[in-house]
Write a protein that binds this DNA or RNA. Structure first.
Length: 289
DNA sequence: AAGCGACCCAACCGCACACAT
DNA sequence: AATGTGTGCGGTTGGGTCGCT
């Protein structure tokens, strides 16, 4: 919401020479107008579209509303474990190229991924008292959180029945294409490959067997949407509402299946780490925990 | 019940680029 | 070549919601 603009000309309106443009949250009527117009005339030429559809909005606003909220293929709701892993991986390759990252998460918008990164990932960087772009934090993601995420995915997939598992083997190509290029991060043999293709790919982990994690994921990956939702308690509504089960996954989920050094106060840093992780972070950040 | 703070996310802005005139 | 228009992108903001005290 643009409070600055709104305050200049009454609630939700801003004066121009020719007309009053509405800002702020969209109403159901506006949504309906936009959907109706696009369903008949198609999208594009957003400025003239806004005018033709009878919307007192900027073309930009209409475009954003359509892309981030109204278009039929937009997915809303919890970011799945697989999506979170992908986001971490792709961000390690491309940085804040949100739209590029979003291309690999069908139905997800760059805005949603950006918000996820800022609210979840950057929060943990803040807890670690390090910059989200620092080598230390990237190493933590790459060698600690991402493998833990994969463990979580594996744990979830092993609980499914054999029917869904066999079905998954028929359509692993897309996720494989997305994940495999990044496996070079985890092997000492492919240093040159990683360095040549990625600007951030020059760091090499002493962990050389983490590829197994990914192979496990790929073997069990099931791109079926309902499958993910059923197994991760993600409730996604076709009409755009969504339910958050509150676990927030994120890095917090890595805690499962491990012994904890935490003090039991919810989402605090201690609860995110087991003993092994703890020593890793001590080394990385010289924590006094 | 009320107050407060943290978190989430929809929507905005400025800028850059592509294309048309 | 210069200018205008449309589009896309990344960064930022602030209202709503939720949980805690």
């Amino acid at each position: 919401m643009d409070v600055k603009a709104r305050s200049s000309s009454g609630p939700n309106m801003v004066s121009t020479e020719e007309e009053d443009l509405k800002r702020g949250p969209w109403t159901i009527e506006e949504d309906f107008k936009l959907i109706n117009y696009i369903s008949i005339h198609g999208k594009g030429r957003w400025n003239s579209l806004a005018h033709s559809a009878g919307l007192k909005r900027t073309g930009k606003s209409c475009r954003l509303r359509w892309l981030n909220y109204l278009r039929p293929d937009v997915r809303r709701g919890n970011i799945t474990l697989e999506e979170q892993l992908l986001i971490l991986q792709l961000h390690s390759r491309w940085g804040n190229r949100w739209s590029k990252i979003a291309q690999y998460l069908p139905g997800r918008t760059d805005n949603e991924i950006k918000n996820y990164w800022r609210t979840r990932v950057q929060k943990h960087a803040k807890q670690l008292k390090c910059d989200v772009n620092s080598k230390e934090f990237k190493d933590t993601m790459r060698y600690l959180w991402m493998p833990r995420l994969v463990e979580r995915i594996q744990a979830a997939t092993t609980t499914t029945d054999t029917a869904s598992a066999s079905a998954a083997t028929t359509s692993n190509a897309s996720i494989e294409q997305m994940l495999l290029p990044n496996l070079s991060y985890y092997t000492l043999d492919n240093v040159s490959t990683a360095a040549s293709s990625d600007s951030i790919g020059t760091q090499v982990s002493p962990i050389s067997d983490s590829t197994d994690y990914y192979n496990g994921v790929l073997a069990n990956y099931n791109p079926n949407q309902d499958y993910f939702q059923a197994n991760h308690e993600s409730l996604i509504s076709p009409i755009g509402n969504y339910c958050n089960n509150g676990d927030g996954m994120d890095f917090g989920l890595i805690e499962l299946n491990h012994h904890w050094v935490g003090d039991g106060d919810g989402d605090g840093l201690h609860n995110l780490l087991n003993a092994e992780d703890f020593f890793f972070l001590q080394h990385q950040f010289n924590f006094n925990m």
